[in-house]
Amino acid sequence: MSAAASSTISVATTNPLKSLSLSSRSPLPSASSISFPSRNPRRLVLVSCTTGDGSKPTILVAEKLGDAGVKLLEDFANVDCSYNMTPEELNTKISLCDALIVRSGTKVGREVFESSRGRLKVVGRAGVGIDNVDLRAATEFGCLVVNAPTANTIAAAEHGIALLAAMARNVAQADASVKAGM
């Protein structure tokens, strides 16, 4: 893969005002596309992805994801699901990967980007924040960091309604009285 090769990453939504295209003179992913379905029918995200030599990229999934998400990734990439890795194991494996998907339990620090030796091109955070990713190091190494800010909004709303219903029905008091033998 030539470091001087020109490539483009495109992220498009069904709203033409919210499309984004990034061009680079580095070996960033390009070519085929992948779409992520959304609960909102007006929202569809398309991301282009292959390596510079035409082969499938390798994605390291460092924390448990849903089976449907992993199957979707397997259609477009070589997926390595390695959970509960130590920081040393992550630093060793990352040199063989083009992308990394984490949740909140894996810290992606400067050591990870240094260990990747420039191969890591995108870190995906399956969740709201990106506080577990060193953004300064990612920028220095030319790595794109993305997250899913609305991924759990429905689950959070359902949880809130369940807590309100539990409070209205005195579930905590009933549980305590049963445990006390009353």
Rank of each mutant, 00 (worst) to 15 (best):
L20Q: 11
D98L: 02
A157S: 04
E88P: 12
K64N: 13
L44P: 11
S116G: 09
V102R: 00
T139Q: 09
V11G: 00
V70G: 05
G54V: 06
N40C: 07
A137F: 11
F113G: 01
D67I: 11
S177T: 14
K64R: 08
G118T: 00
C49Q: 06
S6N: 09
D134V: 05
S2A: 08
S48Q: 07
R136D: 15
S38V: 14
M1F: 14
T92G: 15
L73Q: 01
F76W: 03
C97H: 02
V122Q: 08
T92V: 08
G129L: 11
N152S: 10
V133W: 03
Q173C: 14
S30E: 04
N147Q: 03
H159K: 15
G181D: 04
A165P: 13
G54I: 02
I161A: 15
D80R: 04
R117K: 12
M85Q: 03
D175Q: 11
A162T: 10
T13R: 11
S38I: 02
K71I: 02
V102P: 00
R39S: 09
V128T: 10
E63F: 01
G109R: 07
L144Y: 08
N15A: 09
A62N: 04
L20H: 03
L100N: 05
A174K: 15
H159Q: 01
D80Y: 01
V122T: 03
V45Q: 05
N40Y: 13
A166Q: 12
L44M: 05
V108I: 11
R169P: 05
G142Q: 05
P29M: 00
G124T: 08
Q173E: 13
A162W: 04
L72V: 12
A68D: 15
K107R: 10
D175V: 05
K179D: 03
A174C: 08
A31T: 12
T51C: 03
A172I: 15
L90T: 12
M1Y: 01
S82D: 06
A137E: 00
D75K: 14
T8R: 06
E89M: 09
L73K: 01
A31Q: 11
S115N: 07
V79Y: 01
S38P: 00
M167L: 09
T14G: 09
K64I: 05
P27V: 10
N91E: 13
V45E: 01
I130K: 08
A3F: 10
I94Y: 06
P149M: 09
V70D: 10
S95W: 07
V79Q: 04
V47F: 13
I9N: 00
V112C: 02
D175R: 14
V47R: 00
L120W: 01
T86K: 02
